[in-house]
Design a protein around this nucleic acid. Sequence first.
DNA 1: AATAGAACCGGACCACGGTCCGTTTATTCA
DNA 2: TGAATAAACGGACCGTGGTCCGGTTCTATT
Lengths: 202, 202
Amino acid sequence: MSGPILPANGPAEPERGDAARNRAAILVAARELVAQCGAAALTMDAVAFRAGLGKGTVFRRFGSRAGLMLALLDQSEREFQQAFMFGPPPLGPGAPARERLMAFGRARLAFMDVHGEVERARDLSAAIHFGSAAARLQHTHLEMLLRDGGVPGDARALAYYLAAGFDAGRVAFLLETGEFTHEQLAAGWEQLVDNVLPPLSE
Amino acid sequence: MSGPILPANGPAEPERGDAARNRAAILVAARELVAQCGAAALTMDAVAFRAGLGKGTVFRRFGSRAGLMLALLDQSEREFQQAFMFGPPPLGPGAPARERLMAFGRARLAFMDVHGEVERARDLSAAIHFGSAAARLQHTHLEMLLRDGGVPGDARALAYYLAAGFDAGRVAFLLETGEFTHEQLAAGWEQLVDNVLPPLSE
DNA sequence: AATAGAACCGGACCACGGTCCGTTTATTCA
DNA sequence: TGAATAAACGGACCGTGGTCCGGTTCTATT
């Protein structure tokens, strides 16, 4: 439950020169393959081959397929974090909590439109999936906004339930089957926020 | 978007005698193995061997590992459905929507305490996971209760966000890491319901 | 520059999910 | 009851994620 707020793209301790070089090469190769064939079709063998390395090296650097996907996602995720933590309102600080919560939903859904495929590809492995720094950060952010918005009781638990709505797999499924449109989900979120926060006293 | 309300344990059309027998044998074998080694450690080879059948047969009957898990879950899931659709209040009909929603949360969390492992083992495969009859039924149920409770706007979208909180993987992760206790999640759900529904006019 | 030792590399290897197709078996109908 | 047909069976086979360990390469120390 500790560690850096914003997840870094590199490892905690500095690696040897060749290791760092290889890590970069692997990321480049993976990005190219995703762009070319899609995240779902990316195989670890292909990444290793394209990077001109052995498969063992890829696993040594990233631990698993999920870990590699997480690393790929990392940069985009950090931009998103930057936006909701330090960016301009209403997503960033400066707007009332209610507006920020609403903006968060739209922003996250839009994020998934672009990066959802990679996000979805880092399957199972709950520890990596739900325990990632990005996931924690978003949870904490929502909790803070809820508290800020004057919600009574256990803001942390409430934040959990709200955050669960932004599951890449779930959202992708609903959009693909046509069960919901992006707009419906976005509007639903705003309504949820509206109902959860106490009425404005003005 | 059609089909039976309660998912059946067997296939739609009747199968040949031997096929039905084998289906039963596979389910028995799978259940024993789950009881013995846990759902996560269950392999399709082991199931086939224990059932005295070829692997191909197992896949023919259940399509995939996820499908087999779903079948294992099916009976328990149907009991749960029975309870919230026709059982005694407050979970079943007869109580006000607010109480029923609250009871639903507790009941579902308790369900996951028991069956969560199997539920979690039917990984990925969004179509099977999120599109299952049980998932749809719960979603519809929540939607109905929300509408019944007088929630304004798009009850369906709201129901989606509420249902997302009951993800076996998510819940298991939170409980295992000690981030939340069962009770905190249950209480959080009740608070969420309380906040989402319009205040009682009495 | 030489040496020691840790870190890293590679690719053979394993386990598991899933597919395929030749063979076997249940059912139907004459 | 026997032939015809459709369905089911089995297990060899494949691709992929992940592991392992002997050999190699980098870095620190003197």
